[in-house]
């Protein structure tokens, strides 16, 4: 069984890389896969709080790279999901504390003992990003349907291809179906038209993400919310299952919907 190394990146900050990494890691662990989630955002550690594991950190990735502990000692096993492990970023250092070759070496030590290594990339295109993609065998690009995020995603796709890591697959995050319906938000078709890469997931904007992040419980551990279902579907697609893309629901039915419902006698 070969270990799959998947880096989640975006270029622009705040589009949902960390939330995506946390939920895919949890979802894959729920499916019985042995998972390590690595926070590569050194200096701006966040994956630990999104996963709710911040109180259990003893060592971090820089401690491993600088030889203060063994890799296994730094891994935090999630008690809720024993197949889920976190390698936290250092908070007191910066991106230059780790080099791409060290990242490759570190990830190689996880080969064979784990099914998936998910790497949460920092925003930007500098060394932190280079570190995150160096060990990657697959790349997921997260974007939101906004001009700035799609532009940055396009740049990232170009850089990934230049590194021979392409083409990567796209997660379109935080879609607001009501805005799309009004013609006030780029839809999946528009974004794919522009970026021309394979789609692996569409995640609707979902307030329960805020609640789940407040609690430190990934949304996939929390019943059937729209975003949770979307993340679970992405995990299933990663595992090779063919899962049809969901039609996102709008809160206010349009005239045609209402007419259909009326015609069917459902008012």
């Amino acid at each position: 069984m070969t270990t799959r190394v998947v880096t989640i990146t975006s270029g622009k900050g705040g589009v949902g890389k960390t939330t995506t990494t946390a939920n895919l890691a949890a979802s894959l662990a729920q499916a019985g896969k042995r998972v390590v989630a690595i926070d590569a955002d050194i200096g701006l550690r966040n994956l630990d709080v999104v996963l709710g594991l911040e109180n259990r950190i003893v060592y971090d990735i820089v401690d491993v790279v600088e030889g203060r502990c063994r890799l296994r000692q730094a891994l935090i096993r999630d008690k809720r999901l024993p197949d889920l492990n976190l390698l936290p970023a250092a908070q007191t250092r910066d991106k230059s504390a780790v080099r791409p070759d060290q990242m490759i070496h570190l990830v190689e030590q996880l080969y064979n003992d784990f099914d998936f290594v998910l790497i949460d990339s920092p925003a930007g295109i500098e060394q932190g990003f280079r570190n995150a993609i160096a060990p990657a065998k697959e790349i997921l690009i997260v974007t939101t349907p906004e001009v700035s995020a799609v532009r940055d995603a396009d740049r990232i796709i170009g850089l990934i291809e230049a590194e021979g890591k392409g083409p990567g697959r796209l997660i379109l995050n935080r879609i607001k179906p009501d805005l799309v319906k009004r013609g006030d938000m780029l839809d999946t078709h528009d974004v794919l038209d522009i970026l021309a890469i394979e789609l692996i997931g569409i995640v609707p904007e979902d307030e329960s993400i805020v609640v789940s992040t407040n609690k430190g419980v990934p949304i996939v551990m929390n019943g059937a919310t729209p975003a949770g279902v979307a993340y679970r579907n992405i995990a299933r697609r990663l595992l090779g299952e063919e899962v049809p893309f969901q039609v996102l629901k709008t809160t206010h039915p349009g005239l045609l919907d209402r007419l259909f419902r009326f015609a069917r006698g459902q008012g």
Binding site: V147, D154, V180, D184, D190
Partner: peptide
């Protein structure tokens, strides 16, 4: 003109230069 069409047009223009 829907605002998403403006967004798409602007994106396509800026990406031609970026790429």
């Amino acid at each position: 003109t829907r605002s998403k069409d403006i967004a798409k047009q602007r994106l396509q223009l800026v990406l031609v230069h970026d790429r």
